[in-house]
């Protein structure tokens, strides 16, 4: 009995230490963003701020363009998410429930795209978007991400498990194909749509390489781009500013994640991808 107890206590001990190592840096980031610059640089470093200040955030929002970057991030992420929900569920439904020539080839091609690294496509995409006159525009930021292969895979897998009878019954009742999709199929897909929506929003919010290349002026930067450019540019010496910037990037995502984490876990456990 005592040996079991000892094992349990040491297990809790190890897990808690692990939790501290993983979550500690985030706590330190949040606390330090409220410290004055001198305290952040003080040796040895402090955990709890000895003086609280909002100066870092004030500078971020008043002097720098963070409200604009924040708005850009929201606009891009919302458009990308809506696009993926619509286009991926349409194709996912066609692949799972409708028979049409080239169906299998299309699915395999889309699936194969999951293996292609972003580095392979971004140079031609940049040439394409520039020639369409969309460089440094919201359209340019959004268009290449509207149709993601991951969403098709997720929607198709989910729809395969839905019995054909439901769709056949609606068809016999005389409902048109569009109506069936809108009124019967989509409502059944709510859990998959929730998972896809959250994962897409998140990956768009955190997306870095493409906006770094396409957004060339301040007014189109997304948050990660702005943060990265500030941290390697002239402002890199302002520690407090950068930490406050990191908080602004991280906090919205953390709130979404904590509120909806069961959808995350389901999405990862069922598809194995993030």
């Amino acid at each position: 009995m005592t040996r079991d107890r000892l094992a349990k206590i040491s297990l809790y001990g190890i897990l808690s230490a692990g939790l501290l190592v993983v979550v500690g840096p985030f706590v330190w980031m949040l606390l330090s963003s409220f410290k004055p610059e001198a305290e952040i640089r003080s040796v040895p470093p402090t955990w709890w701020p000895s003086t609280w200040t909002f100066d870092n955030y004030r500078t971020l929002f008043d002097r720098l363009d963070f409200p604009q970057y924040f708005t850009n991030s929201v606009i891009v992420a919302v458009l990308v998410t809506v696009g993926n929900l619509l286009f991926c569920s349409l194709l996912g439904y066609a692949l799972a429930k409708l028979d049409f020539p080239g169906r299998k080839a299309l699915f395999l091609t889309v699936l194969g795209m999951l293996m292609v690294p972003g580095m392979v496509t971004f140079v031609p995409q940049f040439v394409l978007v520039s020639n369409l006159g969309l460089a440094n525009s919201y359209a340019g930021l959004v268009l290449p991400f509207l149709a993601g292969p991951f969403g098709v895979f997720l929607m198709r897998q989910f729809l395969l498990a839905i019995p054909d009878d439901l769709i056949e019954a609606a068809r016999i009742d005389g409902a048109g194909e569009w109506r069936i999709f809108w009124r019967v199929v989509l409502p059944l897909c709510k859990p998959a749509l929730a998972t896809l929506g959250i994962l897409t929003f998140l990956s768009s919010w955190n997306n870095f390489l493409w906006p770094l290349v396409v957004a060339t002026t301040d007014d189109k930067y997304t948050l990660p781009v702005a943060l990265a450019l500030y941290s390697i540019g002239q402002n890199r010496m302002y520690f407090g500013l950068l930490l406050a910037g990191a908080v602004v990037v991280v906090i919205p995502v953390l709130i979404v994640f904590l509120a909806l984490q069961k959808h995350f876990m389901r999405g990862i456990a069922t598809t194995g991808l993030k």
Binding site: L15, G18, L19, V22, V23, P25, F26, W28, M29, S32, I40, L202, W205, N206, F208, L223, P224, L227, A228, S231, F239, L242, L243, G245, A246, V249, V250, V253, L254, F257, L258, Q261, F264, M265, K274
Partner: peptide
């Protein structure tokens, strides 16, 4: 709690994490 905690860094922006770790 542990599961959510361990999963936290996965959902956060790599840029933000890189900024934090540069200071750590």
């Amino acid at each position: 709690l542990f599961r959510v905690g361990f999963y936290l860094p996965v959902v956060t922006s790599i840029v933000a994490i890189a900024v934090i770790w540069r200071f750590l």
